[in-house]
Amino acid sequence: MSVKGRDLPEVGELVIATVTEVFDKGAYVSLDEYSDVSGYVPIGEVASTWVHNIRDYLKEGRKVVLKVIRVDKSKKYVDLSLRRVSDKEKKDKLLEWKRFNRGEKLLELLSKKAGVDLDYLKYEIAPKLVNAFGDVLGGFEEAARFGLAPIVNAGIPRDLAEFIVDLAKENIELKEVKVAAILQLTCEASDGIVRIIEALKAAKMKAESIGGVKCRIYSVGAPRYRIDISAREYKVAEEALKAAVDAALNVISSLGGSGSFKRV
């Protein structure tokens, strides 16, 4: 069975392929995500400019990201393009493939640790994790962050969910994302510095009221103050930074001062 749950890819789909044979007029490949499906990259689909040597782009054994341009269902055969894949598409697809393979390894470890058949995990459990968290690795990451509840809520039997949490904590290293901004706060009142401190305290409190956020605020030369936010998800970090900046500006304004900010 294919990784995608389909026998063949669709036109326009990005695929991971391994180059099997290279000729002057094109190259044959096998599709890593589909069982027993091969394809061909014609020379005209290798690059947008004239190709002097096709092996500058495609070599036997190399894994490449390609775009499907035609599908022959009767022959289980596809025509593919290298030139139509943008740098961003390539980067995103390689990341998806890397995450898929990491998820597969974790399922193999789970099978051994829990004494559960690997096919059961791949065809019964994995789809539930993909549906709830985007991919299998996403499920393990969620387990490492939040424990049992989200895994059980995804429909995973509790006894197996406990093994997933244990395995996630042993194997998943959660990386924090960081965002920052520079605040410029001024207040000409006699106790202006006290009012600025109040604004900074409000900023820190507001940021850290968002779960899983760490906030550090420090002077980088008055009247400039840096806010460093770290969180496990970029969206959360951005939300916390905005909340901190808004709080500081609102408080300093209410206390008779003024402020501005810029991203760094």
Rank of each mutant, 00 (worst) to 15 (best):
M205V: 13
I196T: 12
E176M: 08
I156N: 10
A143D: 02
F163P: 01
A126E: 12
A161N: 10
A161M: 11
L148Y: 14
K175F: 00
I125T: 07
F163A: 01
A189H: 14
K175T: 03
R158E: 15
A144S: 06
C187S: 14
A189M: 10
I156V: 15
E170T: 04
R145D: 01
I151L: 00
I172L: 01
F140K: 14
E198P: 00
A202G: 14
R145S: 03
K128Y: 05
V177E: 15
F133M: 00
K175M: 04
E162I: 07
V179D: 02
I193H: 13
A181V: 05
E173V: 15
K178I: 05
A189F: 12
A149I: 00
K175W: 02
D191N: 15
G192H: 13
A199H: 09
E198H: 08
K206I: 05
P157M: 00
V152I: 12
I164N: 06
K201T: 10
G147L: 03
N153M: 04
E173K: 15
A126Q: 06
D135S: 05
R158M: 01
A207Q: 10
N153S: 09
C187R: 06
V165H: 14
F133E: 00
I125P: 11
E124V: 09
E141I: 04
A168M: 11
E176K: 15
A168P: 06
G139D: 06
L137E: 10
V136E: 05
P157N: 03
K201G: 12
E170K: 15
E170P: 07
A143P: 00
I156P: 15
P150Q: 04
K206V: 02
D159P: 04
E198L: 04
D166T: 11
F146V: 01
L167S: 08
K169W: 09
L160R: 11
N153C: 01
A199N: 02
E173T: 15
E141A: 07
E142G: 00
E173P: 02
A180E: 10
F163W: 03
P157F: 00
I172G: 10
A154E: 01
A126K: 12
I197A: 14
E141V: 05
I197S: 15
G138H: 10
G147H: 11
R145C: 02
L129P: 14
P157D: 02
N153G: 00
